[in-house]
Amino acid sequence: MAWTREQMAARAAQQIRDGFYVNLGIGIPTLVANALPPGMTVSFQSENGMLGIGPFPYEGEEDPDLINAGKQTVTEVPDTSYFSSSDSFAMIRGGHMDLSILGSMQVSEQGDIANWMVPGKMVKGMGGAMDLVAGAKEVIVLMEHVEKSGAPKLVTRCTLPLTGTHVTDFVITDLAVFEFTKRGGTLVLKELAPGVSLDEVRAKTEAKFDVGLAN
């Protein structure tokens, strides 16, 4: 059985250490905030200028001046701070964020990420993704293992425009967990979702990887 989105988020949450400052991307990464083990002090950053993000507000208490990077209404926590976009990205680009967890369309066997553009199709923009992958101390990609069409997303070389090169540390999919030995290093399969076979992962992965499963 492949992992659900919530289970993928919970697996990603296991990578978070007590005291971490973390930026979560839009989509499945957002779910990681709800999957933290209790008792940990973790601050979530939102690149539009907020450190220390609380839960969604109660109905009727939404504040148009208080949103996250996904433009959703959020709340403060007791240690929240606000700052400008340039301060926010100084935080990100200056290597102060412990961890960035984001989604992707493709990840290559060198750890390149492509997650912002499909030429001729989608015009959205990279937002803060290029800054996050270039600046965070650790980068985890959280994505489905294959496209809806069945095409692999872990590929030899990204065919879509890149977000960053040699920037990925971990890839967590609905089928498995992979780790790069170092930035730009070798991709290693570390863990399979319950009931998922190595053969299935091999069949659905284009990128070359070593097998380093724990017993």
Binding site: E47, S84, S86, S88, F89, R93, D131, A134, G135
Partner: peptide, 25 residues
Amino acid sequence: PQGTLAERIRAGGAGIAGFYTKTGY
């Protein structure tokens, strides 16, 4: 990139003609 945009504007206002960043390499 959002951080590049923010920093380009900050630099422009501060009289800094250019800067180097890892973002987008």
